[in-house]
C-alpha cells in the first residue's frame, strides 16, 4: 500500500516513541515498505550529539537498529536547522519532500519539555502535506 514511510523521531526522547515506531514497523512489514527516520537538529551541540555529522551517524545507527528489530528496510535522514525550536514544521515538511515518502507516521503528545512532536507539529504537517499522515497518540 505504501512504499516509503517517514517517521519523525526525537532522538533525545526515543524511548517515548514506542507506539509510533511499532505502528510504522508493522505497516512497513505489511506493505514491504522502507522506513525513513527523520530527525531535526541544530548546529550547536546537544545532549544527543556534539555535531550535526555526529547526529546523522546516530540517526543512521538508530535506523539500523529499528530495521533489525522490526524486520524491514530502514534509513536515517537528518535535517539541520538554524533554529530547531521554531523551524520544526518547515523542516519536517521539507523532509517529507526530500525523502519522497508516501506516508508519515508520527507520535504526538510526547511528554516532557521538547514539545517538538506535540499535536501542533503533527497537525501542522497533516494540514499542509499532500501525503497521508498518521498521528499516533500516546506512547
Amino acid at each position: 500500500m505504501f512504499s516509503k514511510i517517514m517517521v519523525p523521531v526525537d532522538l533525545g526522547h526515543a524511548d517515548k516513541l514506542g507506539k509510533a515506531l511499532g505502528v510504522a514497523s508493522q505497516m512497513a512489514r505489511n506493505s514491504g515498505a522502507e522506513v525513513v527516520y527523520v530527525g531535526v537538529t541544530g548546529s550547536a551541540p546537544t545532549r544527543v550529539a556534539h555535531t550535526p555529522e555526529d547526529y546523522a551517524a546516530k540517526l543512521d545507527a538508530f535506523a539500523a537498529e529499528q530495521a533489525e528489530t522490526g524486520g524491514h528496510a530502514a534509513a536515517g535522514h537528518a535535517m539541520v536547522s538554524h533554529d530547531p525550536a521554531t523551524d520544526l514544521d518547515a523542516s519536517l515538511a521539507k523532509a517529507a519532500e526530500e525523502t519522497g515518502a508516501d506516508l508519515v507516521v508520527m507520535a504526538t503528545h510526547v511528554p516532557g519539555a521538547f514539545d517538538a512532536f506535540g499535536p501542533n507539529h503533527g497537525g501542522a504537517l497533516a494540514r499542509h502535506s499532500k501525503i497521508s499522515v498518521f498521528l499516533v497518540r500516546g506512547a
Binding site: 546537544t46 533554529d83 521538547f114
Partner: peptide, 10 residues
C-alpha cells in the same frame, strides 16, 4: 546551552 528549548521560554 540548548538551542531547541521550548518556544514559550523565549
Amino acid at each position: 546551552g540548548k538551542i531547541d528549548a521550548p518556544v514559550p521560554q523565549r
